[in-house]
Deep mutational scan, measured.
Amino acid sequence: TTQFTVHSPEQAEQWKEYAKQKGLEVHVQKKNGTWHVTIH
């Protein structure tokens, strides 16, 4: 599991796309103005 924080919805979307291409599961949670992205 990879977990990191991004600071814009655009970055979060890019990671979603990346994960989809790799066939991975991605979870994005918005918290205090940042987005926590978890890739399984």
Rank of each mutant, 00 (worst) to 15 (best):
T5A: 08
T1N: 08
N32A: 06
W15Q: 01
E13K: 09
V26Q: 01
G33H: 06
K30T: 07
H27P: 00
V26S: 04
E17N: 09
E25F: 11
I39Y: 02
Y18H: 04
T5Y: 13
W15H: 02
N32E: 10
H40E: 08
E13M: 10
F4I: 11
P9A: 15
W35F: 08
Y18E: 03
E17S: 08
P9C: 09
Q14A: 14
T2P: 04
K22A: 12
V6L: 05
G33S: 05
G33N: 10
W15A: 04
K30V: 13
A19Q: 01
T1Y: 14
W35E: 00
W35S: 01
G33V: 02
Q21D: 10
E13A: 10
S8I: 03
K20S: 08
L24W: 14
P9R: 14
K16E: 09
Q3W: 11
Y18A: 04
F4H: 04
W15V: 05
T5D: 08
T38Y: 07
V26L: 06
K20I: 12
Y18N: 02
T1W: 14
Q29H: 12
Q14F: 15
T1C: 12
A19L: 07
S8K: 04
H7K: 09
A12S: 03
K22I: 09
K30W: 14
Y18F: 09
K31L: 14
V37I: 14
Q3S: 14
Q11L: 14
L24E: 02
Q14P: 03
Q21S: 13
H40W: 15
L24H: 04
H36N: 06
E25C: 13
H27F: 11
V37N: 00
Q11E: 15
T1F: 13
H27T: 14
I39D: 00
A19D: 01
T2L: 15
T2R: 13
K20M: 11
E25H: 11
T2C: 15
V28F: 07
Q14I: 11
A12N: 01
L24N: 03
G23N: 07
T38D: 02
K31W: 10
Q14D: 06
K16R: 12
V6I: 04
H40Y: 15
H36V: 15
T2G: 06
L24Y: 12
T34M: 14
F4W: 05
Q11P: 02
W35H: 02
K31D: 09
V26A: 07
F4R: 03
H7L: 10
E10M: 07
Q14L: 14
A19P: 01
F4K: 03
K16S: 07
H40Q: 11
Q11K: 09
T34A: 14
S8W: 06
S8G: 06
G23A: 03
L24S: 03
H7I: 08
G33Y: 04
H7W: 09
E13V: 06
K30R: 08
L24A: 04
Q21Y: 09
K16T: 08
W35T: 01
H27D: 11
E10R: 07
E17Y: 07
E25S: 11
K20F: 09
K30F: 15
T34F: 13
W15I: 09
F4M: 06
T2F: 15
L24F: 12
E17F: 07
H36E: 14
E13G: 04
G33A: 05
Q3H: 14
F4G: 02
A12T: 03
H40P: 03
L24V: 06
W35A: 01
V6Y: 03
E10H: 08
W35Q: 01
T34N: 08
T34E: 14
K31T: 11
N32I: 03
Q3P: 03
K20G: 05
T1M: 12
V28M: 04
A12P: 01
Q14E: 10
Q29V: 15
W15N: 01
S8E: 04
Q29W: 12
E10C: 05
G23K: 05
Q21K: 13
E10D: 08
T34W: 10
G33M: 05
H40M: 13
E10Y: 09
A12I: 08
T38L: 07
T1S: 09
T1D: 06
G23H: 06
H7A: 13
T34P: 01
Q21A: 12
T1E: 07
T2H: 13
